[in-house]
Nucleic acid binder design. Structure first.
Lengths: 363, 363
DNA sequence: CTGTTAGCGCATTCAG
DNA sequence: CTGAATGCGCTAACAG
C-alpha cells in the first residue's frame, strides 16, 4: 500500500476529497462533509423516513444541489434495498400486441421512477425460466410476465421467493400469482354468434397451437357458441404457415358442406388465412366470411375491412404494471392472487358480411 | 452490537456460516470456505484471468456446484465492474418498426449474456435526456439509442463520458458516435423513380414532421428523383391525422393538375392516407397511385397490395447491437465513429400500378 | 500460484 | 435528533 512520508498509511478518503472537484462523482460523504453533518443525516434527508431538523435538512439540500449529488442506485440495490427496476418477459417483441403491452408497462414504470428490463422468451419455457432467473439475480423488485406454455411451466411462487410477480395475457398454474387476462372466451363466442346471426352454419376455427392458453380459450368460446346454436364445431390447430392453411382451406372447400365462414385465433393466423384465401381465388365475405381475434392497425384497410375481436393491449399492460407496483409498495405476497379480466370489443367491419361503411363496435 | 458471553463482538461471518444452509444465498466466501481456499482464488477461477492450479480449480468448481453458487451481479456492478446490462432508448414500443429493432437487440444481448433496459423517449428530447441519465446512473455498459429530434438534442460524447454509445435509425450531431442507418434517400428516390416510370408527373410527398431525420432524408430522396426527371416537387409535412390528410388530398385533387400519385414518409402516414383515400372515394392505383416507406406485415393484403420501401428493421438492431458489444469489448472510444448504412428494398406490389400478381422485390 | 487487506457507496445497527 | 461504526459481496493491489 502507498505510505506517506511519516510511514502512516495514506488516508484514502482524504485523497478522494482532494480530487473530488476534479473527476469523481460526488458521494454521500462528500455531501455530508460539505453540509458539515454525518452521512447518516444525508441518508435520512434523502429517504425522509426519520425526522431531521428543518435547518439541517436545508443545509443538506443545499449541499446536494451544489454538488449535483445523485444517490448511487447500484450501491443502494447492492445494500439490499430496492433496485428500482422491474423485469418484463414477453414471448416476442416484434409482435405488435406484445409490444403494445410492453409500451404501457414502460410508461407506468416511468411514473413510478422505475426502469424496466425487458426480455423475450420466444414461447420457450426453458428460456423463460433462464430469464426469470437472470432477473432475480439482478434483484428486480417485481416481475411481469406473459407466461409461455402452461405445460412444463417452471413458474411458481417457490421460484420467485418473495419477489412479487404478475402474470398477464395468460395465466400460470400457481394460484397465488396475480393474473390479468382479457375475455378470450367471451370475445370469441360473441363474434361466432354474430357470424351465426349472419346465417352461417359451417364455421371453421383456424388456430395456432392449442397449448397456448389464449388460443385454446378462444377455441372454447367458439365451441360454446356453436354448441349453443346446435352446430357442429370444426377446428384446425397448428396453422403455422400460409401453405398449410391453403391446403386445409382447399380441402375444406371441396367438401360436400364446405365452411361458409372462418374464425382465426390471432393476427398471425389471420395473415396466413388472408394469403391462402387470396391464392385460392376466394372472395370475402361472399365465398367465405371472416372474423379474426386481435385488432391491428390496418385491419380497416384490408380488402375487405376485417371484423375482429379487439383486445385492450395497452390497458392490460397498464393494469398489470399497476397491480405489480401495488404489491411492491405493500410488500405483501398474498396467498391467493387477484384475477382481473378485461373486457374485449367486437369491431364489426365488412369481412363478416356486415354492410356498415364504417366500423361498428360492440362492447 | 450483540456481544458474546465473553464480551467479544460476535463474529458475524460465523453466524452467517451457520445459517448458510438454511436460507441465505451462498456467497463467494461460502464457496471459499467449502473449498478450503481464499475468496480471491474463487474469484480468479470465476474470471479465469489469472492462472490457478488445476487441482484447486477443480475443488472450487465442485464447491460452486455443490452450493449452487452464482456470483452476485449487483455486487460486481457496484464494485465498478461490468454491469452486464445495456440500455436501449427508442421513441415508441408500440410502433412495430421500433419494436422489431428492439427485438433484435434483446436477441443479440442474450447471446452476449447481457440484459437490456428498455425505455421510450416519445420523441421528446427532454425525456430522452432524462432516460439516458437514468441509464448512466445504472452504470449500463453501453447505450443504444434511436435519437429523437436532432435539434435540441442533448446527446453528446460529453454526456456519455466513456460509456460506448451507438445511435441507429437516426444520427446524432456528435460525429464521434457510431451510427447505423438505412438508405433513406436512396429508397425514397428509387420508389419515386419507379412511379415516374409508370408515367406519373405529379407526385405528392405526404409526411410527418420534417424535424425527424428519416422523414426529411426521405423527402430529399423524393425531391432528387423529381428534379432529375425535371418535375416539380410537392411535399406536405405534418400530416398528423386522417382528417388533415383528407383535407389536403381533397384540395389537391381539385387542382387543375391534381397529383396522380402519392408517396408517404412512413407507415403512420400510410394509414392516414389510406383512410382519406377511402373516404374520398378514390381508387388506387387508377385515381391515385401509391407508394409508402416502411413495409408492414399486412401490406400485402390491403386493397390493393401496397408498394413500399422495405427497411431491414431487425438487421439494423442486430448490427447496432453488435457494434456496441464490439466497442464494449475493446473498451475504446474512437474519435470518429463508424457510419454504417444498410440497404433497403423496393417491394413492388400493385398500388403503384404494377400488374404483378405477387410482390416483386428490387434490391 | 495463493492468501490478506482494503474499500466501492450506502443504510442498518447502536450510542450518544 | 444526530453521529460512528460496520458490513453487504466482490475484486484490485499487494504480500507471501
Amino acid at each position: 500500500m502507498a505510505k506517506s512520508l511519516t510511514g502512516q498509511p495514506v488516508n484514502k478518503a482524504r485523497q478522494r476529497a482532494a480530487a473530488a472537484a476534479v473527476n469523481r462523482k460526488p458521494t454521500m460523504s462528500d455531501v455530508a462533509r460539505l453540509a458539515g453533518v454525518g452521512t447518516m443525516t444525508v441518508s435520512r434527508v434523502l429517504s425522509g423516513t426519520v425526522r431531521v431538523s428543518a435547518e439541517t435538512t436545508q443545509r443538506v439540500q443545499t449541499a446536494i444541489q451544489q454538488l449535483n449529488y445523485r444517490p448511487n442506485v447500484l450501491a443502494r440495490a447492492f445494500r439490499g434495498q430496492r433496485s428500482h427496476s422491474i423485469g418484463l418477459i414477453i414471448p416476442y417483441l416484434y409482435d405488435p400486441f406484445f409490444a403494445s403491452c410492453a409500451h404501457a408497462v414502460t410508461a407506468v414504470a416511468r411514473e413510478h421512477g422505475y426502469s424496466v428490463i425487458i426480455t423475450t422468451s420466444n414461447e420457450d419455457p426453458e428460456t423463460e425460466f433462464a430469464e426469470v432467473d437472470e432477473m432475480l439475480q439482478r434483484h428486480v423488485d417485481g416481475l411481469l410476465v406473459i407466461p409461455s406454455r402452461v405445460r412444463n411451466s417452471r413458474l411458481t411462487r417457490a421460484l420467485f421467493g418473495k419477489t412479487p410477480v404478475v402474470a398477464f395475457d395468460r395465466p400460470v398454474s400457481d394460484p397465488s400469482i396475480d393474473t390479468v387476462l382479457v375475455q378470450n372466451a367471451v370475445g370469441s363466442r360473441r363474434v361466432v354468434e354474430h357470424l351465426i346471426e349472419h346465417g352461417h352454419r359451417h364455421i371453421t376455427y383456424l388456430a395456432l397451437s392449442r397449448s397456448l392458453f389464449t388460443i385454446n380459450t378462444r377455441f372454447l368460446g367458439y365451441r360454446r357458441a356453436m354448441q349453443d346454436a346446435g352446430l357442429e364445431s370444426c377446428a384446425v390447430f397448428d396453422c403455422t404457415s400460409e401453405e398449410i392453411v391453403e391446403q386445409i382451406l382447399k380441402a375444406k372447400m371441396a367438401l360436400d358442406t364446405p365452411p361458409t365462414a372462418v374464425v382465426t385465433s390471432n393476427t398471425l393466423v389471420t395473415r396466413y388465412v388472408l394469403g391462402a384465401i387470396s391464392r385460392l381465388g376466394l372472395r370475402i365475405p361472399t365465398d367465405l366470411a371472416f372474423a379474426g381475434f386481435d385488432d391491428f392497425d390496418l385491419a380497416e384497410f384490408t380488402s375487405p375491412p376485417l371484423t375482429v375481436v379487439r383486445q385492450p393491449a395497452q390497458e392490460m399492460g397498464r393494469v398489470a404494471a399497476n397491480l405489480l407496483f401495488d404489491r411492491i409498495a405493500r410488500g405483501e405476497t398474498p396467498h391467493t392472487g387477484n384475477r382481473i379480466v378485461l373486457p374485449v370489443e367486437i369491431v364489426l367491419r365488412r369481412s363478416c358480411g356486415c354492410k356498415h361503411r364504417a366500423a361498428f363496435v360492440i362492447h
